Amino acid sequence: MRISAAQRTENENRIRAAMDRLLRGEIPPGGKCDIKTLAREAVVDRTAFYGTRPYAHLRVEFDRRLQALQQAGEIPDPREAQIARLKAEVTTMKERLSRSESTIDALAEFRTQALARLAAQHEEIVQLRAAADGTNPITRLPSARTTTITIGSCS
């Protein structure tokens, strides 16, 4: 079915208006920032955007503007923005978990080494005490006495 030039202009205006709404982030419920939603919002057949169809140049313009927004760091579709944010958060959490696990492993190894050293030192102390008690004549020195010196006043 052929459309008149006036109908085609009206359709292009509706498509451009819908394109502007989608790129501003005004995504309808159940839609995305894509050609399918653009066609639905403009009330135009989606196939008119492909190949040599009448609105293929508008699809190219839509894709170009969408890419420009994405390269500028803006994501018009709130769901896509949330997905990107959550993916980045998952990556950060995985890196944090990996660092935590390596820290835990290092601390567990340190604990094992510290306990082994303490056990070896305790064993050495027990052996030294046993050797000191029986065979070696060790004389214990008397404890140091504290002497109090009083200084009188000079007159």
Rank of each mutant, 00 (worst) to 15 (best):
R8E: 05
R8G: 02
R8T: 06
R8H: 04
T9E: 11
T9Q: 10
N11D: 10
R16D: 05
A17D: 13
A17S: 15
A17G: 06
A17T: 15
A18S: 09
D20V: 12
R24D: 06
R24G: 07
G25L: 03
G25E: 03
I27E: 02
P28C: 04
P29L: 03
P29M: 07
P29K: 07
G30L: 03
G30F: 01
G30S: 02
G31V: 04
G31R: 06
K32P: 00
D34F: 07
K36A: 14
K36L: 10
L38M: 08
A39Q: 01
E41Y: 04
A42Q: 00
A42H: 01
A42G: 02
V43M: 08
V44P: 01
T47I: 12
F49D: 00
Y50K: 10
G51I: 05
T52P: 03
P54Q: 10
P54L: 07
Y55P: 01
Y55G: 00
A56V: 13
L58R: 01
L58Q: 02
R59P: 01
D63S: 05
D63I: 14
R64P: 02
R65D: 00
L66S: 02
Q67K: 06
Q67Y: 07
Q67R: 10
L69P: 00
L69M: 05
Q70S: 03
Q70F: 04
Q70I: 07
Q71P: 01
G73H: 09
E74Y: 06
I75S: 05
I75C: 05
P76T: 10
D77H: 03
D77S: 06
P78S: 03
R79C: 11
R79G: 11
E80L: 10
E80I: 02
A81H: 06
A81N: 14
Q82D: 15
Q82H: 14
Q82V: 07
I83K: 08
A84G: 07
A84S: 13
R85L: 14
R85Q: 08
L86A: 09
K87Q: 14
K87R: 14
E89M: 04
E89K: 03
E89L: 07
V90I: 15
M93D: 04
M93L: 15
E95Q: 08
L97N: 12
S98A: 13
R99C: 05
E101W: 04
E101G: 05
S102M: 15
I104S: 13
I104E: 10
D105N: 13
D105Y: 04
D105G: 08
D105R: 15
A108D: 08
F110P: 01
T112E: 15
T112G: 13
Q113V: 14
A114Q: 11
L115Q: 13
L115V: 06
A116Y: 05
A116S: 13
R117Q: 12
R117T: 06
A119H: 09
H122L: 13
H122W: 07
H122G: 11
Q127L: 10
Q127E: 10
L128F: 10
L128P: 00
R129C: 08
A131P: 05
A131K: 15
A131R: 15
A132L: 14
T135V: 13
T135R: 11
P137A: 11
I138F: 06
